[in-house]
Amino acid sequence: MDLARSTIRVIILGAGKGGTALLELFTRSPDVEVVGMTDLNPDAPGLRLAKNLGIPTTTDALALIAERRADLIVDVTGDPKLGAQLVQHKPPRAEILGGKAALLIWKLAQHEQDLRDQLIQAEKLACIGTLASGIAHEINNPLYTITGLSEHLREETRPEVIRDYVEDIIKSGRRIADIVQDLNAFARRSHREEQCNVNLNHTLDEAVKMAARRATMVDQIKVVTQYGDVPPVRGNADELLQVFVNLVTNAVQAMEGQGTLTLSTSSANGFVFTTIKDTGPGIPYNNLNQIFDPFFTTKEQGKGTGLGLHIVRDIVIQHGGRVTVDSTLGQGATFTVKLPVLQIP
């Protein structure tokens, strides 16, 4: 057997913090297939993620080992009694990784996860940098209003006019506060533990609002929304917003200020499907297989990190979903994000 090319089939025992980190790490590796996960707690976070990914789960470790053919069994339960039973019940060719070795792998997975979080934050700040000129322009408009009306107030004596001016100044000040609040919310560092119910229709609207602050997002771009009555998904709202800000911003950049941006949502078979379609030049066929690779970019030097779509895919996978792209030269591109719906007990 060619070990360099073979897929390693893995069972993870333990679905707490350590098992979840290993599951996230293994699912990002093309040469690792997680064939099962177990934990005595049926509500363990790793089991929820595994179910979303379509990976078999159970609370019976020995039954899972007997049913699934695995090359490697990773035991992060910390249960010495289970370790002794594994030796007796494991398939002949399967290897067991437990104890200090499993702890080391878990620590490496945690380190990799921390690096991923830092990468997501760095890309988020880079995205804010591309929005800077649009945000400055948006703040300047109400700021001019405040400055102009304040100067008129110096000499105005009519109470009703003064009242109108003050109302306009207050509205402009609140507008600036809203812009800053939106920016701060997007820029803040998200935490993996912050899970909530997310309405993707609202998230798309927020993403368009952020992307609209780009200098290139002008009136010539028509935004068409085709939202379905979709159920919520469970996830990190900040990270999911970052996914759609990236996709919408890329679509806007591709159209160079002119075209139609179509956003749609629908649900089927336990998943919510979100599509972002543009009428830009499209993506060359040879680039489609590389577009989610880290540091791959077709933008001019200094105008892109090459990490945006890689992080988009990474976040979507962590939420138990999948992102795909379809494009024909001259006919634009369509990105589809598939996320599991919130499971209500």
Rank of each mutant, 00 (worst) to 15 (best):
R5Q: 10
A15D: 05
S29Y: 11
P30T: 04
V32D: 04
D39R: 04
N41W: 06
P45G: 10
R48A: 15
K51S: 12
K51E: 14
N52Q: 15
R69G: 09
A70H: 01
I73H: 01
G78Y: 08
Q85R: 15
L86C: 11
K90G: 02
R93C: 07
I96D: 02
A101S: 13
A102K: 06
Q118I: 08
L119M: 15
I120F: 13
E123Q: 14
T130Q: 14
S133I: 02
S133C: 05
S150C: 09
L153S: 06
R158H: 14
Y165P: 01
Q181L: 10
S190R: 06
C196L: 10
V198L: 02
N199P: 00
N201A: 06
H202V: 04
H202E: 13
D205H: 08
K209E: 11
M210L: 15
R214F: 00
D219N: 09
Q226P: 05
D229W: 01
R234E: 08
R234H: 08
Q242G: 13
Q258G: 06
T265E: 04
T265L: 01
S266G: 08
T274S: 09
I276P: 00
T279H: 05
I283V: 15
P284G: 08
F296I: 05
E300Y: 12
Q301L: 13
L307T: 00
L309A: 10
H310N: 15
I315Q: 07
Q318R: 15
G320C: 10
G320D: 05
L329V: 14
G332Y: 00
L339N: 04
P340L: 07
